[in-house]
Design a protein around this nucleic acid. Structure first.
Length: 570
RNA sequence: CGGGGUGUAGCGCAGCCCGGUAGCGCGCCUGGUUUGGGACCAGGAUGUCGGAGGUUCGAAUCCUCUCACCCCGACCA
């Protein structure tokens, strides 16, 4: 591609509303233009990147035996009503009516549509397994779109769905996809990690997320550096402390803690470590009142909590309810001396504590030196209900956990029969019996990958694209293209040669000053650059420079074509 | 949804407090000089000052409403 025949739209200054690097750089490099909140136009240069990502995914999915199809973005409400997701989904599902007042949605995911295809087409176990996928534009009306393309409302997604005659076969395909995703992200040149995950609203059992590791990631991942354990913190198990509960050494005392409602304030006020305090959280389930206890420095994990059968679903108690059940406003509530019909659920860590501090159920007072059994009844339940923190023991017993941040770019689920049962997608097995199909579902955020790749690969000059997804592999930067016939000839010849051998090359024939040219080519992230100037040509040399490296090397003009082809394996 | 902030030329911003009819840098156009890291000189074009209403002789500026966008929060006793 010649730059004069293309459309570069770089910006010297990033628009003020961009926050994270990838967003700023994407705007500056002219990859995207904002049209509305969370909705972007992909400019020609950006689209080249998106297409490369897409094609790698497509190649690997095909190789893994999946078959591509394309489902509609607009889906009739009836399909969503069949699985009750029409009611379950919140406002992030974009709904609208057509001219006949019939309800439709813009699909945020396509389990219903694909299951509808499967139940119409698949009659026999002989047709299974089947894995269908698409690469398609999705819409999710996010509460708060942000970070540019990273959490957009409209985005490109690869979503695949597999159908199986048995759970064993689903597990086989799940592993196949685990391997395939690993290949895809490796080929994309990303540093990533597969982590055990929560299944969220889509439902099902087994699930892994694939995260690109980046400090700006929205998800926290707990992993064990000395083993391959990795899990979303939402899911990572908080194990019980190894040591048993210590014997009490203090008497319980009531102390005044005026205006100290947060554990941090109480600990500081009393001169005690935060780990000696207990935080009490009041929740309601079916008008029944529960008190949840976590250590002061820990936080409640709502996902774990909501999975407890006797609490599902739960909501936080209102201030009035807290007062009604405990006789005290929030801020000073605690588990001591409360009515027997209030169930106490203690986190494992709390159950092991002794001589701790908690609210006295009396405004302005806390209790210190509190001990289980002696001062209050043992909890009704001792369960893992908190988020793990750095340094917690790894659930696999292989040492302390570390926590890092990641950008979720892929997610695989074992859906089992959730959708096939709801939509009566069944087949006849070997014995002629109808059975619900086992299903798996596998997503990749194509759009988000571009942002994540930039987040992971950039410097102060701009983007450093991994070669596999760079908009161009090589740039030719001729200095004085319009002035110098030798430069122009050398540049044109090299351009033709590389193009003929299938190299994705950009010839910057804009006749810009060298500074402008270099700045643009670096901003845009082209991995390799060949600079051709009269100065070098006099000695028969051109310069080669790698984007990720500041040093350049002189190469004889006569060899440069072969040099680049060698470099790229073209 | 709650809190905070911002809307002025394609982009970044000033002007607003103290009302007098809009400016700077970059970019863009023309001509010339330049050409190894975002050139220089000369000339030029570009704005419903986010929108509506109000106050006023007069509103980018003051008041009311509204829309859009950004940031933070939505973990909490």
């Amino acid at each position: 591609m010649r730059a004069t025949q293309f459309f570069l739209a770089t910006l010297k200054e990033a628009p003020a509303d961009a926050e994270i690097v990838s967003h700023k750089l994407m705007l500056r490099a002219g990859l995207i233009k904002r049209v509305a909140g969370g909705i972007y136009t992909w400019m020609p240069l950006g689209l080249r990147i998106l297409r490369k990502v897409e094609n790698i995914i497509r190649e690997e999915m095909d190789r893994a035996g999946a078959i591509e199809l394309l489902m509609p973005a607009v889906v009739p409400a009836e399909l969503w009503q069949e699985t009750s997701r029409w009611e379950m989904y919140g406002p992030e599902l974009l709904r609208f009516k057509d001219r006949h007042q019939r309800d439709f949605v813009i699909g945020p995911t396509h389990e219903e549509v694909i299951t509808d295809v499967a139940r119409r087409e698949i009659k026999s176990y002989r047709q299974l397994p089947l894995h269908l996928y698409q690469i398609q534009t999705k819409f999710r009306d996010e509460i708060r779109p942000r970070f540019g393309v990273m959490r957009g409302r409209e985005f490109l997604m690869k979503d695949g769905y597999s159908f199986h005659a048995s759970y064993e076969d689903l597990q086989r395909e799940y592993q196949n996809m685990h391997d395939t995703y690993t290949r895809i992200f490796t080929r994309l040149g990303l540093s990533f990690r597969a982590v055990a995950a929560d299944t969220g609203s889509i439902g099902g059992t087994g699930s892994h997320e694939f995260h690109v590791l980046a400090d700006s990631g929205e998800d926290a991942i707990a992993f064990c550096p000395s083993s391959n354990y990795a899990a979303n913190v939402e899911l990572a198990e908080g194990v019980a402390p190894a040591l048993p509960r210590k014997d009490h050494s203090e008497q319980m005392k009531r102390v005044a803690t005026p205006d100290k409602t947060r554990c941090e304030d109480v600990a500081e006020f009393l001169g005690l470590p935060l780990t000696k305090t207990v935080k009490a959280i009041a929740v309601m389930h079916n008008e029944q009142f529960f008190l949840l206890l976590v250590r002061g420095d820990h936080t409640l994990n709502e996902i774990k909590t909501s999975k407890l059968p006797f609490l599902n679903p739960f909501r936080f108690a209102s201030d009035d309810e807290v007062e009604r059940f405990l006789g005290c406003r929030p801020g000073y509530i605690g588990p001591v001396g409360i009515a027997h019909d209030v169930q106490i659920i203690a986190d494992r860590t709390v159950a092991q504590m002794s001589d701790f501090v908690c609210g006295a159920n009396e405004a302005g007072f806390h209790l210190t030196g509190v001990n289980w059994d002696r001062d209050l009844r043992e909890p009704n339940y001792v369960i893992d209900i908190r988020n793990v923190v750095e340094g917690d023991p790894s659930p696999d017993g292989m040492g302390p956990l570390s926590i890092c941040r990641g950008i979720e770019v892929g997610h695989i689920f074992q859906l089992r029969t959730k959708y096939s049962e709801a939509m009566r997608a069944s087949f006849l097995d070997e014995s002629g019996q109808p059975r619900a199909m086992e299903m798996g579902c596998y997503g990749i955020g194509v759009t988000r990958i571009v942002g994540a790749a930039i987040e992971q690969n950039h410097d102060d000059r701009g983007i450093i694209f991994p070669r596999a997804i760079a908009p161009f592999e090589v740039a030719i930067a001729p200095i004085g293209y319009g002035k110098s016939q030798p430069v122009q000839n050398a540049a044109n010849t090299l351009y033709s040669e590389l193009k003929a051998s299938g190299v994705d090359v950009l010839l910057d024939d804009r006749d810009e000053r060298p500074g402008v040219m270099f700045a643009d080519l670096e901003l845009v992230g082209i991995p390799h650059r060949i600079t051709i100037g009269e100065r070098g040509l006099k000695e028969g040399m051109v310069e080669y420079q790698e984007r990720c490296n500041t040093a350049s090397v002189k190469i004889p003009l006569a060899h440069i074509g072969a040099y680049v082809r060698e470099l790229l394996g073209a």
